[in-house]
Computed example of a mutant assay.
Amino acid sequence: MSQYPSGPFGNKDPFGQQPSYQSPYQSPQGGYGYQQQPPQQSPPLSPLAMISLFSGLGSLGGLFFFCCCGPIVGLSFLMGVASVTTGHIALKKFQTEPGRESGKEIAIIGLVFGYIGLTISVLRIILLIVSMLVPAVLPAIAPNRRPQFHLEMPEPN
């Protein structure tokens, strides 16, 4: 029985060829002397590296998008600590168990974001504390010095 049905003119194969069950781009040996290999699966992505990256991004995002809120600075600080901690744990895991998980670059990027977020958070917390203490400390340092403003008012006509 043929692969093609018979047509109105009695031609069973429209191209006059035998049906081929082999790919035209592949030789019977597997193609150009190479045997086909099944695709190798890459190791799974490390969840600790992903947590490090996302908490580092959250630390930076909290600092730059919510710059006026004091509680956000504390939250950004905690996210920076989480990013640095999970990033270092992930890198240690990559050294002790090589090839088991992937994502070393992601852990390093998370570490960088975490350290930047931590540094900016610490500087902003110091600035926040200083800005709260300066008005409280200034009267104790110079109790009799008050700012004097000399405003000259125009005389009414």
Rank of each mutant, 00 (worst) to 15 (best):
V81R: 04
Q40G: 08
S42E: 15
A107I: 02
G31A: 06
P135N: 08
N11I: 15
V137D: 02
P14K: 03
Q35L: 12
Q148L: 15
Y32C: 05
A142V: 12
I109T: 10
L60P: 01
S102D: 09
L138I: 12
S23L: 05
M79V: 05
P28A: 10
F77K: 00
S27P: 02
G30P: 00
E101C: 12
G80Q: 01
M50Y: 09
L133H: 00
N144A: 13
I120N: 02
P98L: 11
K93Y: 07
P43I: 08
P154V: 15
N157H: 12
S102F: 05
S2E: 09
E152K: 14
A82L: 13
E105R: 07
Y21W: 11
I126M: 13
G56H: 01
H88D: 12
F54L: 15
T119I: 13
Q148P: 14
S83L: 05
K92R: 15
R124H: 09
Q36S: 12
G30C: 02
L45R: 14
V122E: 06
L53F: 08
E155N: 08
S20E: 09
P43K: 08
L53G: 05
M153Y: 13
S76K: 03
S20F: 02
P47E: 07
E97I: 05
C68Q: 12
I106R: 00
V130C: 06
Y115G: 06
V137W: 04
E101R: 07
P19S: 10
Q29M: 05
S121D: 02
M1E: 10
P24L: 10
G31H: 02
N144Q: 09
G10L: 06
P143Y: 07
